[in-house]
Amino acid sequence: MEAVEKISSGSNLKNQLSKPASLGINIFFIIYSLLCIVPLVLIVMVSISDEGAVIRDGYQFIPSKFDFAAYQFLFKDATQIFRSYSISIFVTIIGTTLSLIIMALYAYPISRTDFPHAKFFTFFVFFTMLFSGGLVPWYLVYAQVLDLKDTLLALIMPLLVAAFFVLIIRTFFQTTIPAAVLESAKIDGAGELTIFVKIVLPLSLPVLATVALFQTLTYWNDWFLSLVFITKDANITVQYLMYKTMLNIQFLANNSTAAAAINAAGGTFKFPSETVRMAMVVVGIGPIIFAYPFFQKYFVKGLTVGAVKG
């Protein structure tokens, strides 16, 4: 049993790229990474710009006038923000953990070609990706049949099983786990659950880590469930808390009739300026972006451990 730590094909000294090719790849990625970072920098910069300057001159990478008023405005109600953060964190952690377990448990049986009903259950989950009954019936199930309105469960349950990920996990199980390993375990008399926990899961850490990452993002970025199911602002996630304003703006931009009618009726809109909107983006995604490198550290650990073979 010799454990070989696999990092990348490039780690094999004999199998490295030539210097110029390697340099080329590095330069390419540096440029691409810049393309990805620059817009985020712009968002941060706009969020600390003077409001008037933004409307007069448009977005500037280096604001003509710095102003932190947007953040002061947002954190006037800091208790709500922190409350929403804690709800987001709770929902994200519980949701991701549960969904990973549930999806892996489902994906394993349908990955087994010897399981006669595998095709049916693959179809069973795939079908949900294509057909949906629409918002209203779906809402009725959660609000009336299950009575989950205004509960945290309503923020978790709808996202637990995603057909797309189940099928991805299934495919990884099929391709990365040698049938021989399963056979020998069975001959040793191990039960299916034992095989799954002791053999399949450890061998599948790369895909599990990937799906965990995606689910973390799904839960963290979700605002729609808060919109639909939560009636009291105290219990909404931070994404929705921040996104609400955007939705209000969108509503008026897209409903010219309503906007004109409200205006005529004397409704005044105190919409946050663009600087505040950008600050909201920063507040909404900031923590997860900062948490992401830490996540990744563990993921990479998981990935390398996953490649340990006996």
Binding site: T128, F131, M157, V161
Partner: peptide, 11 residues
């Protein structure tokens, strides 16, 4: 899946 997808499919 039944609750989240199949039941609402009557819609």
């Amino acid at each position: 899946l039944v609750f989240n997808n199949y039941i609402p499919m009557f819609g």
